[in-house]
Structure formats: structure tokens, C-alpha cells
Simulated scan of single mutants.
Amino acid sequence: MNINDDLSNRLEQCYSGAVYDVLRAMGYPNQTLPNNIRPLDIDKKMAGPIYTVSGKYDAGYDPHETLLNWTGLLSKAPKGSVVICQPNDETLAHMGELSSETLQLRGVRGYIVDGGCRDSAFIKNIGFNVFCKYYTPVDVVGRWKAFGYGEPIKIGEVEIRTGDYVMADRDGVVIIPQEILEEVITKTEEVLKTESLVRKAIMEGVDPQEAYLKYGKF
């Protein structure tokens, strides 16, 4: 997959609301993941190219095989990517302490899962970006395996492909199709500049409606 750290860093300087506004204006209004997927640390945000993973729950899995599978997932995650996982399960933790530390050491920018997390205090303390739906101490051993590395997944109503980009912060998670990435980033940066002009005008006493009509943004 193509990793462009410059685009990731530029996108990370934006915020999800502005990215969403640009996508909506471009005809992509349904690119946000379900609003119950939340960050462990609401003060952090992340952006980058997506590496997709999916998985399956089965109580009959061999514990050793599930750990081999899990460590294989950690090995496959590309440096500079954000891993997004559709676990097809709502009972287990699909991220934990040692796994987060491993991904962080390997240069992965973050992990987003339509599922659970454990060891959340430790993960927050080391500063690794994780977004999840819930917390539980129950791990994947003997119960869950990953598959479909790099293949398309769906979370909520959003189709997600490896190579698409994500921008995530305390307000939510926005998926950007790779074909329009640079246009979205450029337009979002323009939005941020315009918002600054609107804010400055209002702080200087300009009527808010007048400011909106002048700059076309509010």
C-alpha cells in the first residue's frame, strides 16, 4: 500500500467536522463511522492510510492458534498506517496493552475497531491512538481469529478499503476515499483558513450573518 506521511500529517492538522463538511459538499455525505466508536483519549486525534482487517468469533478455536494468528496481525500492519478492524464480534477485546505497544513501536499510527479494548488505562498512558466501542477484560485467546488482511470491510454503512484514508478525533471517525484524498485535504485546509477569517470578523464586531454572507462559511 502507498504510505504518504506528508498527506497524513496535513490531514492530522485538520479536524473531523471540517473534513466531513468538505466530503458532504463533494457528494460524499455518508463517510462517518457509527458514533459509538470513541477514542480512549479524547484529546488526541489521528489520520493516515487505512490497512483493513476482519475477523471471526469461534469458541472452538485452539488457544495457541489464536495467539499465532493475533501476532501475525501485528506483524502485517504496515508502518505509517491506521489499522481498522471489523471483528464481527461484540463480546471480546480486540486490542490490549502489549499489542498496542507493539504497533506503536512498529510505527503504526493508530487502531480503530468496531469492537472492544482492554488495558485501556495503559494504552492511554503510552499515547497509542485507539478508537473502540466498549471495554472488557475478555481477550481473544481461544475465541477469535483475524482474516481478510487488506480486503474491503464495512463498518456501519461505510465501505472501507485498504488505501483509503481516515481522519479521527473526539467528534468521530471520517473515511476518505483514496481517489479524492488530495482534493479533500486541500479543500479542508481552505475551509480552515476561511473559518479563521469569519472568526476574526465576528471578534471584531461584524454581524454573524454579515460575516457568513461575506465569506460563505459558518
Rank of each mutant, 00 (worst) to 15 (best):
S8T: 14
R10P: 04
L11Q: 05
G17I: 13
V19P: 11
D21Y: 05
D21K: 08
L23Y: 11
Q31E: 03
T32W: 00
T32E: 10
T32Q: 10
L33A: 05
L33V: 03
I37G: 03
I37L: 09
L40G: 08
I42W: 09
K44G: 03
K45L: 04
A47E: 06
P49G: 02
I50P: 00
I50G: 00
Y51C: 02
A59K: 10
G60Q: 08
T66K: 00
W70T: 15
L74Q: 01
S75K: 10
A77D: 08
K79V: 02
G80N: 02
V83N: 06
C85T: 10
C85Q: 04
P87R: 13
P87Y: 08
D89N: 13
D89A: 08
E90A: 12
L92E: 08
L92I: 04
M95H: 11
M95D: 05
G96C: 06
S99V: 01
S99W: 11
R106L: 10
G107E: 09
G110I: 02
I112G: 05
V113N: 04
V113P: 04
D114W: 01
D114F: 00
G116F: 03
G116H: 03
C117P: 14
D119N: 14
A121F: 05
F122P: 01
K124W: 04
I126Q: 08
G127V: 06
F128D: 08
T136I: 03
V138K: 06
V138Y: 07
D139Y: 14
G142F: 09
R143V: 07
R143T: 13
W144L: 01
F147V: 01
Y149K: 09
G150R: 04
P152K: 11
I153K: 08
I153Q: 07
I153P: 05
K154T: 06
K154W: 02
K154L: 00
I155V: 13
G156V: 04
V158N: 13
V158A: 09
E159T: 05
Y165G: 00
D171F: 03
G172V: 06
I176D: 06
Q178I: 01
E179H: 07
E182D: 15
E183W: 02
I185C: 13
T188K: 12
E189W: 12
V191F: 07
K193Q: 13
S196T: 11
V198H: 03
A201L: 11
A201E: 14
M203I: 11
M203S: 13
P208M: 10
Q209V: 10
E210V: 10
E210H: 11
A211E: 14
Y212C: 07
G216K: 00
K217C: 07
K217G: 00
K217P: 01
